[in-house]
Design a protein around this nucleic acid. Structure first.
Ligand SMILES: [Mn+2]
Ligand SMILES: [Mn+2]
Ligand SMILES: [Zn+2]
Ligand SMILES: [Zn+2]
Lengths: 145, 145
DNA sequence: CATTTTAATGCAATTATGTTGCAAATATAA
DNA sequence: TTATATTTGCAACATAATTGCATTAAAATG
């Protein structure tokens, strides 16, 4: 496999997770893509290498440990992306904007775009903000329309 | 039924939809709640009064006509709320913030809070913004924590 | 290195959500 | 009242996700 293997093995150990084939496989796939990856796509790529249930459990464990974060697209489908380094089991630092392309349906993590603070009605206590923009991504905006 | 009936009947006619029992029922339920209503809840309340498929189709028709709008909560569950008056089949004017309470799980339409404009990387063309805040709602922030 | 312990996987079954095609029923127009 | 167009209900199917449990594999132990 890729030369990321030892890096990923360390990542698993650091988070108290055993170094297993399905886990390394998921990390390999996610890291090789420029946008968030949907559960159905992951399932398709892994094929019969891993059981569907295992995939769900791998993703859940990774999310809890702060290794990946989940983004729901406009259809409600779960998509996963590797977290930035600052994330941990205790806190995710992924409060960046996500961009869901209407054409290619990719979901980009716009790490550089911060979500502006928000004024909410009295009484409401905001814990997290989740902003998803839709439209055309840089790659598609040239081709269509 | 409620005294909203004739108002809802007019709403249906205005949108070229026939005045049917399941449709009036859905409008009655949605209008009687202070927050967005999940599909599972609707299904449960309607019970055997209407087929599941009918409910899906009613919701879809309403959404297309601009009568209601759909909000996905943090779990990806569909929730529906009646649109403000400005909405139509051609355009929804519901680009307001939604608030998903971590405690009671209600979804509030914060109609008064506008989503701030956003600077995105070159090439990206934003069509719509979808901001969902999580935390504690006004009703829950007093009780818990 | 062999063994014990613990964590993770695979499989089967079940639930929830959503879709499609089509015949029957119903609302509205004629 | 009859014709028409829409809507509904049913059955079947599809996909996403969860749970329990036996088996397997990884890491810890000695
Ligand atoms: Mn992200
Ligand atoms: Mn709303
Ligand atoms: Zn694109
Ligand atoms: Zn609440």
């Amino acid at each position: 496999m890729g030369n990321n293997t030892s890096r990923f093995e360390k990542l698993l150990v650091k988070n108290g997770l055993k170094r297993t084939v399905p886990r390394l496989q998921v990390l390999e796939i996610l890291s090789g893509r420029d946008s968030a990856t949907s559960q159905p796509y992951l399932e398709q790529v892994m094929g019969k290498d891993a059981d569907r249930v295992t995939l769900y459990r791998v993703l859940q464990a990774f999310e809890e440990k702060g290794i990946i974060h989940k983004v729901l697209d406009q259809q409600g489908t779960a998509n996963y992306a590797i977290c930035s380094d600052g994330c941990s089991a205790h806190e995710h630092h992924d409060e960046h904007v996500h961009f869901n392309c209407d054409n290619c349906h990719k979901i980009y993590c716009l790490d550089t775009v911060k979500i502006p603070a928000l004024k909410v009605p009295a009484g409401f206590k905001v814990a997290h903000l989740n902003l998803i923009a839709t439209g055309l991504c840089a790659s598609c905006s040239g081709k269509v329309n």
